[in-house]
Design a protein around this nucleic acid. Sequence first.
DNA 1: CACAAATTAAACTGATTAGTTAATTAATCA
DNA 2: TGATTAATTAACTAATCAGTTTAATTTGTG
Lengths: 112, 112
Amino acid sequence: MTDSDPLDAVFGALAHPVRRQILARLAEQDATVNELAEPFDMSLPAISKHLRVLEAAGIISRGKRAQFRPCHLEPEPLEAVAGWADQYRHIWQARFDAMTRAIETMKGKADD
Amino acid sequence: MTDSDPLDAVFGALAHPVRRQILARLAEQDATVNELAEPFDMSLPAISKHLRVLEAAGIISRGKRAQFRPCHLEPEPLEAVAGWADQYRHIWQARFDAMTRAIETMKGKADD
DNA sequence: CACAAATTAAACTGATTAGTTAATTAATCA
DNA sequence: TGATTAATTAACTAATCAGTTTAATTTGTG
């Protein structure tokens, strides 16, 4: 029973466009399941399942107001994603720097 | 045929711990399939499939040197991931700022 | 109490995923 | 040429995923 990396669930949750759209919506404001479902041509249970995936990954949490379950975005896992990707920043930075130098060289030649 | 968001494939590829470990290895240096497979207790075809997933997402590319297919990390999709997550930076930043203010308030009270 | 609304649960289907082993391709080497 | 090495392809299995429809649960309201 090796407990799996939480990033597995986070990246898995982010792999579906519907779920990313839901997050974009929640970034603006908390919303109920019906509100979140509205833009999609999809059954309500399907949306409910997507929300469960997001919740299992810790990316959203849910309240309980009357018969509504308002969803709330939890930013920490997204911060973890940014942190993970930042590990590789020096690699694309290096590529960017090389490009910049190449452009500078071309400028130098153009000045001849 | 709505062509799907490339982030689908990228996040999907990153959702597996073996694939993330492979990327960590490739961040240090290009490597062959056998080299990449070595740390894993898993058949070579399984690794081959993981590499195909990474390649399909554009996260790695592969060369052809003799009978070897050296793999190379392509940083752009990872940069895209960082950029995507950065959309949400203001949200966790706000939470961080609130925490900072709360700490300052506590300090103030302690000074009473 | 009865009903309507919001959401989830259950049961099912079809597609995809992650792995296996065995066979195949392609290139080097003796 | 024949053997060896690197890697992929093929064929298969078990599990998970993404969606459906129908039914149940929970809460508010007339």
